[in-house]
Write a protein that binds this DNA or RNA. Structure first.
Lengths: 111, 111
DNA sequence: TCCATCTGCAAACAAATACTTGCAGGTGCT
DNA sequence: AGCACCTGCAAGTATTTGTTTGCAGATGGA
């Protein structure tokens, strides 16, 4: 995914998603190869529920993908993998992205 | 500012700061040249108080700088300017940054 | 003096986020 | 049946973030 391909709104979503220690560490972990939820939670030392919440956000932002795999012993495992991206942030790039921010001037038109 | 120069924690701060429509538009406006608070607020159509809050965040993140200028007619004007940055975000780069996240595993050790 | 401009900030409220806890369903093995 | 795995999600609470409103101080000119 390239910066030139995303709208301002989507860029905001992506940046907000990346701006979190847990999610950053999750990406770091997945950078070493795909993994399934329970195991990843154990490796990171966080609860599965918490991990799931973050994984859902990462997936919503398009930063990771998931697939359900039936293991040999019948267990359903959900594997997550990184969706490659390359976002070169510069003042000019952001200025360009800002042009495609939705009309209203705040964040997600409140009321 | 380069990605390799910032710690994981600082990167989180920077990304969180960028992940906001108002602040993105402020940067876009400043990309066209420095400006002072009141004028910028008028141009953007937002309140001065709101703009100030966002400018403070941008400055705290090191994305803009400010200087107080005494205009000819004696008014004190606060000019803001962009602090150039170039952050190339990739899974690998984030993984590297994640290594320097502070020990605790959540966001800003709560209690 | 009154008005227009510039600045700054805090208090109060609204809304979005993060996290925990608890419950639910599934398989297979002993 | 009971235990060890796997999954999913919602309710409740704690915390952070965003925004408005209101006040305050300064200058210069009519």
């Amino acid at each position: 995914m390239e910066l030139s391909e995303v709208t301002g709104d989507r860029l905001v979503q992506i940046l907000a998603t990346l701006a979190n220690p847990h999610r950053m560490r999750i990406l770091a972990a997945l950078a070493g190869g795909e993994d399934y939820v329970s195991r990843l939670a154990r490796e990171m030392g966080i609860s599965r529920a918490l991990l799931q919440v973050h994984l859902r956000k990462l997936e919503a932002a398009g930063l990771v993908t998931s697939r359900l795999v039936l293991s040999e012993d019948g267990k359903a495992m959900k594997y997550y993998d990184i969706e490659p991206f390359s976002l070169h942030l510069t003042p000019e790039a952001l200025a360009a992205a800002a042009l495609s921010l939705t009309a209203d001037q705040s964040q997600g038109d409140r009321k």
